[in-house]
C-alpha cells in the first residue's frame, strides 16, 4: 500500500512539471506587457524598461521559466502587482473559499447522484426511473451560471429566502449558520451537472452489476432485496463509480469559476478571471499551478481510495 502511494506520487512529478511548462508558455503568449500594465499607459519607456529589468522580464524566456520554477519549488510564488501582496497568501485564502463551495457541491452531487442512480436502476423502466432520467437530462443540459442566476431571481430576489451573493454578511455575520445560508444556492447550482452525470453513470454501473452471478448468489442465500441492491450491488458498482467521482470533482472545481462569479463568492476562480483580465501574470501562473497541483493530488487520492475499495487492484 505504502509502496503504491509512493509510486503514484513519483509519477506525479513529471505531470506537475509539464503543467508548469504549459502555464508558463501560455502566459508568455499573452499579449500585453506586464510592466505597462503595472505602470499604466502613461509610463515612460525608460520606466517600463527599468521595471522589466527588475522583474527579470528582459531575460530569455527559458531562464525566466527556470527562475520562476526555482522559486516555486521553494514555496515562493512571487508577488501580485495588482493586489500588492504575496501570490501564495492570496491563493491560499481564495482557494479555501473555493474548497468550501466545491466541497459542499461535491458532497451533494456524490450523495444525490449515487442515490438517484441506484433508485433508477432498481426501478428500471418504472416511474421513478423515468422521472430521474428526465431530471438528469435537464440537469446535464442547463448552463450552471444560468441556473445560478435563476435561483437568485427566485429564491433571493422574489422570495427573499436566501442572501443574493457573497460568503458572509458584511455586518454581523460570520458564524456557521450565516455561511450555510450563503452556501446553499451556489453549492446546489454547482452540483447539478455533476449530480446528473453521476446518477446516470451509477445507474449504468448498477445495471451491469445486477446481472452478475454473485448477485444471484446473494439472492440464493436469501439476502433481502434492499440489501442486495444497496449492499452487494452498490458495493461492486462503486468500483466504477469512484473514478467518475474523481473526474466530476475536477469538473466541480472548474465549474466553480462560473458560480463564484454569479454569486460573488470570494473564491480562486473569480480571482483568476480577474487576474487574467488584469494581466496579473504571476497571480495567474501561481493560481493555476496551485489548482492543477491540488487536482493532480486529488486524483492520486481517488486512485488510492479505489485500491482500498477493490482489493483486486492491489495485487
Amino acid at each position: 500500500m505504502g509502496g503504491y502511494i509512493l509510486k503514484r506520487l513519483i509519477s506525479a512529478v513529471p505531470v506537475l512539471l509539464g503543467i508548469t511548462v504549459i502555464v508558463f508558455a501560455i502566459m508568455a503568449l499573452i499579449p500585453g506587457d506586464p510592466a505597462t500594465a503595472i505602470l499604466g499607459s502613461y509610463a515612460t519607456p525608460e520606466n517600463v524598461a527599468r521595471l522589466n529589468r527588475e522583474l527579470g522580464l528582459d531575460r530569455p524566456l527559458v531562464s525566466q521559466y527556470f527562475i520562476w520554477l526555482g522559486n516555486l519549488v521553494q514555496g515562493d510564488f512571487g508577488r501580485s502587482f495588482a493586489l500588492n501582496r504575496p501570490v501564495l497568501d492570496e491563493v491560499l485564502e481564495r482557494f479555501s473559499a473555493t474548497l468550501v463551495l466545491a466541497g459542499a457541491a461535491f458532497v451533494l452531487c456524490a450523495l444525490l447522484g449515487i442515490a438517484a442512480g441506484v433508485v433508477s436502476a432498481a426501478r428500471q423502466y418504472g416511474a421513478a426511473d423515468k422521472a430521474i432520467t428526465v431530471a438528469v437530462i435537464l440537469g446535464i443540459s442547463v448552463p450552471s451560471f444560468f441556473l445560478g442566476m435563476m435561483m437568485i431571481l427566485v429564491f433571493a430576489v422574489r422570495l427573499r429566502w436566501l442572501p443574493v451573493s457573497g460568503m458572509y454578511e458584511i455586518y454581523g455575520g460570520g458564524d456557521l449558520r450565516d455561511l450555510l445560508r450563503h452556501l446553499a444556492m451556489p453549492a446546489l447550482a454547482l452540483s447539478v451537472v455533476a449530480t446528473g452525470v453521476i446518477a446516470r453513470l451509477t445507474r449504468a454501473a448498477m445495471l451491469e452489476v445486477l446481472r452478475q452471478d454473485f448477485i444471484r448468489t446473494a439472492r440464493a442465500k436469501g439476502v433481502g432485496e434492499g440489501r442486495v441492491i444497496w449492499g452487494h450491488a452498490l458495493r461492486a458498482a462503486m468500483v466504477s463509480v469512484i473514478p467518475v467521482l474523481g473526474i466530476q470533482a475536477g469538473f466541480v472545481l472548474s465549474g466553480a469559476v462560473y458560480i463564484e462569479i454569479v454569486f460573488q463568492w470570494p473564491g480562486i476562480g473569480r480571482m483568476l478571471v480577474d487576474a487574467i483580465l488584469k494581466r496579473d501574470i504571476l497571480l495567474v501562473q501561481g493560481g493555476v499551478v496551485f489548482v492543477a497541483a491540488c487536482y493532480v493530488f486529488f486524483n492520486i487520492l481517488v486512485d488510492v481510495a479505489q485500491s482500498v475499495l477493490d482489493p483486486r487492484i492491489r495485487t
Partner: peptide, 12 residues
C-alpha cells in the same frame, strides 16, 4: 490534469 476552464480561460 488541468481543470479545463482554467485552460480555456488561459487560451482566451
Amino acid at each position: 490534469a488541468f481543470p479545463y476552464i482554467l485552460l480555456a480561460l488561459a487560451i482566451v
